[in-house]
Amino acid sequence: MTAATIPPDDPARALLHVKPDDGNLPHLSIAGGTYTILVSGKQSAGRYCLFEMRVPPGGGPPPHRHDFEEMFTVLDGAVEFTFRSEKTLARAGETVNIPANAPHNFRNVSDQPARLLCMCTPSAQDEYFLRVGDLVASNTAPPPALTPEEQEERKQRAARLAPEYRTELLTP
C-alpha cells in the first residue's frame, strides 16, 4: 500500500471559533424550530455545515431524503428518529447518523424543547435553510406568526427548491 500524500496547509483557511452568543450567526425559523448555522459550507470549504437545532415539543421536519450524510447529537431532550420506517429514540448525549439517500425524519417526543447539533457532509443544507427559513433575532426567539397562506408558501418553496439541494421531500 502506498502512503497518501497530504496536501499542503491552506493558509487562506483560518481557525473558526464559534461562540453561541455571537450576534452575527444566522438564526432561522424552520418547521416550527429554530436552526442556527454555526459553521457554513463557505467556512468549511464545502466539506460540511453544522447547525444547532432547537425543536419544540412535537416539532421536526417531514419525511425526506438527500444524497449527503447527516449526523445528529442530542444535547437536550428526547428525539424520535424514523429511519427507513423504523423508529429509534435518542436522548441527550446520544448521536444518530443518517446515511445518504435513506428516508428519514425526526420529532421531539418530549414535553420540553429539544436541542441538537446537526452536521451535514458535504455542505449545502445551510444554503437551502437560508432560502426556505425565516430569519429570527436569536436562537431562543419565537418563530414568526405566519398566516395559513404564508405557511403554505413556505412548504411550496421548500418543495420547489429541494431538488436544487439534492433533497427529496417524501410527503404528498
Rank of each mutant, 00 (worst) to 15 (best):
I6R: 11
P142R: 12
Y128I: 06
L117I: 13
A14S: 13
R115T: 14
R13A: 04
Y48I: 02
N108V: 11
Y128D: 01
V96N: 08
P20H: 08
A14Q: 15
A114L: 11
E150H: 07
A100C: 08
P11L: 02
A141R: 05
P103L: 10
G59S: 02
T167M: 15
R84V: 02
Q43I: 12
T171I: 14
A4Y: 01
L15V: 13
D126C: 08
K42S: 07
F68E: 01
T36A: 14
Y165I: 00
E80L: 08
A145G: 01
L89T: 14
R54P: 00
F81N: 09
L135Y: 02
D76G: 01
R115M: 07
T147S: 15
R107P: 01
R65F: 05
V55G: 04
A78R: 12
M71G: 07
P163M: 07
P143L: 03
K42Y: 05
E70I: 01
H64S: 08
D111E: 15
A14M: 09
P7Y: 03
A102S: 11
A14D: 12
G93A: 05
T82N: 09
F106G: 03
F72S: 02
P143K: 06
C120S: 13
D21H: 10
L135D: 04
Y165T: 01
S40W: 04
E150R: 11
E127G: 03
G60W: 03
L25H: 03
V39I: 09
E127D: 15
R107M: 15
P62V: 14
T73R: 09
D10A: 09
Y165G: 01
N105I: 11
D67P: 00
D134F: 11
E164Q: 15
G133E: 05
Q156S: 10
R107V: 15
K87A: 14
E94R: 06
N139E: 10
L116Y: 09
G32H: 01
A114N: 07
D10F: 02
K19M: 07
F68R: 07
A45E: 13
M53F: 13
A92R: 04
R13P: 00
A137F: 05
L161C: 10
R157C: 09
N139G: 12
P103F: 12
P103N: 12
Y128C: 03
P63I: 10
A3K: 06
P56G: 11
S123L: 03
P122V: 14
S29Y: 04
D22K: 10
A92H: 06
G77P: 03
A145L: 10
E70G: 01
F68G: 00
R65T: 02
A162H: 03
S123Q: 05
F83R: 10
F51K: 01
N24K: 13
V39P: 00
R166G: 04
P99C: 12
E149G: 13
T171Q: 09
D76Y: 09
L50K: 03
D126I: 08
D9P: 00
L15K: 09
V79W: 06
K87N: 14
A162I: 07
Q43P: 02
L146W: 03
H66R: 07
A4T: 04
R84C: 00
A102E: 14
M119E: 07
H104N: 09
I30P: 00
T95P: 02
K19Y: 07
T171A: 08
T34A: 01
H17R: 14
M71D: 00
D9R: 06
P148N: 08
E94S: 07
N139H: 15
A145S: 13
L38D: 02
P57C: 10
